[in-house]
Simulated assay, not measured.
Amino acid sequence: MKFTPVKTPIVAKKLFPNYTWDIATTEKELYLTFDDGPTPEITNWALDTLKSYDAKATFFCIGKNVEEHPMIFQNIIKNGHRIGNHTQNHIKGWSTKTTDYLKEVDDAQFAINATYNSFQNNYDSKFKNPKSSIIKPFRPPYGQITPHQGKQLIANGYDIIMWDVLSFDWELDVSEEKCFENVVSKSRPGSIVVFHDSVKASKNMMYALPKVLDFFSGKGFVFKAI
């Protein structure tokens, strides 16, 4: 947390304008995102919590977790949320060759699409097109991606989704209250907010998420998928 701000600086957004940092809107809308799942118990808890507020979100899934927990992945889709790619093994882009990085993304996409298609007949008609509902969003683990990696992924049809606000739910030295404060003090209409449906982040996320939903719902906000 010492080197990464809660709120993404404007200069970072201007340096990488081809990445999505927030959503331009004049409406009271927030875009909650969850990284690193699907995770037993934690992801389903997040889904139940979101459902109680009629909130939609985007889940950036690790390919190997999709393969290990296909039923939880199915629950994300059935609840009307969007799926994003978070690489196959949660690797760091800055220390990975571009060819290896692209393969990680492709492997994760294969896992996502294969698992999606295996359940496709059980979905509502609005979830029948994997290309429109799954393929495009990608978030680099740790936010680490080189310019060349980013250029190649965009050429391959991915939307690189970064963030406007970090909750820091994964940081063990960040309190539950601070995690909540990070989100409510920095989020604005159109903010993309990062949570994690992971074991490491579960204590802070499970405390902050319902409070964030309650706080912004009380102010007339709606929560949308990217």
Rank of each mutant, 00 (worst) to 15 (best):
M1G: 15
V6W: 09
K7M: 12
T8E: 09
T8I: 12
T8H: 09
P9A: 04
I10P: 07
V11G: 06
A12F: 12
A12K: 14
K14P: 05
Y19M: 12
I23D: 00
A24G: 03
T25I: 03
F34Y: 11
D35P: 01
D36F: 06
P40T: 04
E41R: 14
E41D: 15
T43W: 02
K51T: 13
K51P: 12
K51G: 15
S52Q: 14
D54V: 06
K56Q: 15
A57Q: 05
A57E: 03
T58V: 04
F59Q: 02
C61S: 06
C61T: 12
K64M: 10
N65C: 03
H69T: 01
H69I: 01
F73R: 06
Q74N: 15
Q74K: 15
N79C: 08
I83W: 03
G84D: 02
Q88Y: 14
Q88V: 00
H90R: 03
G93P: 00
G93M: 02
W94I: 08
S95A: 13
K97C: 06
K97V: 05
T98S: 13
D100G: 11
D106M: 07
D106R: 13
A108K: 08
A111P: 00
N113K: 13
A114H: 14
A114W: 04
Y116D: 08
Y116N: 06
N117T: 11
S118Q: 14
F119Q: 07
N121V: 09
K126H: 11
F127Q: 11
N129I: 13
K131W: 08
I135N: 13
P137Q: 08
F138R: 02
R139I: 09
R139E: 05
Y142W: 14
Y142P: 01
Y142F: 15
Q144R: 11
Q144F: 14
P147S: 08
K151Y: 05
K151H: 08
Q152E: 14
L153W: 09
I154R: 07
N156T: 00
G157W: 02
G157Q: 04
D159R: 13
D159C: 03
I160E: 00
D164E: 13
L166T: 08
L166F: 08
D169E: 09
W170I: 12
W170K: 09
L172W: 10
S175L: 03
E177G: 07
E177H: 11
K178H: 05
C179Y: 02
C179R: 03
F180D: 00
E181H: 09
G190S: 04
S191C: 04
V193F: 00
V193E: 01
F195S: 02
D197Y: 04
D197C: 02
V199P: 10
K200I: 12
A201R: 07
M205K: 00
M205F: 07
L209I: 10
P210N: 03
V212W: 02
L213Q: 02
F215W: 12
F216R: 01
K219F: 09
K219L: 11
V222W: 03
V222S: 13
F223M: 10
K224D: 04
K224N: 10
K224A: 11
A225S: 14
